[in-house]
Simulated scan of single mutants.
Amino acid sequence: MKKTLSIVATFIICLISCTQNLREKQILNSNIKKMNNSDLIENVKLAINPKFQDWVLFKNGTYIIFDNVDTIKAVNDEAIKQMKEFGPVFAGGPAGDFNTIHLTKTDGWIVSGHGYGMYTYVNPSEIENKTPNDIEIGIFGRSKRDLDGKNPEILYINSSKK
């Protein structure tokens, strides 16, 4: 019985992993409208509570909010470190968990994960289904976060320090 459960669990984990890899390929190779960098930056600015002034945005829409920037030597280095640690998605662990937040000041959603202060912006134009549910949005956002985690490229840094 234990061996059968172990085989089933392994199969499910492999299935989830394969589905995740397929979704990543779809994101990279899709004909879905991709946002230009300035639109992405503007939408993320509207998505973030204005009380948070220190944040770093990555190429695929994942951003990290810093509320203790005075204790950080180089925010870009810290952002990449956190992205490498909390960005990649691994089936069966907390990296696969997400929550979908509907935005009010701009179109789209924010997908949160297990990394503190880490969120991924999803624009409606990026999703094929024009009436997506929270699970579709969350999986799509999680896939974008995974891409940023595996190849972190900083797009923009917002800083309260002038």
Rank of each mutant, 00 (worst) to 15 (best):
K2F: 10
K2S: 08
K2N: 14
S6F: 12
S6Q: 15
V8E: 10
A9H: 14
T10F: 12
I12F: 14
I13E: 13
I13Y: 12
L15M: 12
I16S: 03
I16T: 06
I16F: 06
R23T: 12
E24W: 00
K25R: 13
Q26R: 15
Q26S: 14
Q26D: 13
I27N: 01
L28Q: 15
L28W: 02
N29Y: 09
S30V: 05
N31T: 10
N31E: 14
N31P: 03
K33V: 15
K34D: 07
M35F: 10
N36I: 09
S38W: 09
S38R: 10
S38N: 14
D39G: 02
L40H: 01
I41Y: 08
I41M: 12
E42C: 09
N43G: 09
V44Q: 04
V44M: 08
A47E: 08
N49M: 09
K51F: 11
F52T: 12
Q53K: 15
W55A: 01
L57C: 06
F58R: 00
K59Q: 10
N60S: 06
G61A: 03
I64A: 02
I64K: 04
I65M: 07
F66P: 03
D67W: 11
N68I: 04
V69E: 14
D70W: 08
D70Q: 09
T71Y: 13
I72R: 07
K73I: 11
V75D: 00
D77G: 01
E78Y: 07
I80V: 12
K81D: 09
M83Q: 08
E85F: 10
F86D: 05
G87L: 02
V89H: 00
V89E: 01
V89P: 00
F90A: 07
G92H: 08
P94C: 06
P94D: 10
A95Y: 01
A95C: 06
N99L: 11
N99E: 12
T100L: 03
T100C: 13
T106F: 05
D107I: 07
D107H: 10
D107R: 08
D107T: 09
G108N: 05
I110K: 04
G113P: 05
H114G: 06
G115W: 01
Y116K: 13
G117T: 01
G117K: 03
M118C: 06
M118H: 01
M118V: 06
T120E: 00
Y121D: 03
Y121S: 02
Y121H: 00
V122H: 00
E126Y: 05
E126Q: 11
I127G: 00
I127V: 11
I127K: 04
I127Y: 02
N129Y: 00
N129M: 05
N129H: 05
T131A: 14
N133W: 06
D134M: 07
I135S: 13
E136G: 03
I137M: 02
I137G: 00
I139E: 12
I139L: 15
F140R: 01
S143R: 05
R145T: 13
D146P: 04
D146I: 03
L147T: 03
G149Q: 04
G149H: 01
K150G: 07
N151E: 11
N151Y: 09
P152F: 11
P152Q: 07
E153I: 11
E153R: 08
L155R: 04
Y156V: 05
N158M: 05
N158G: 00
S160Q: 12
S160G: 15
K161A: 11
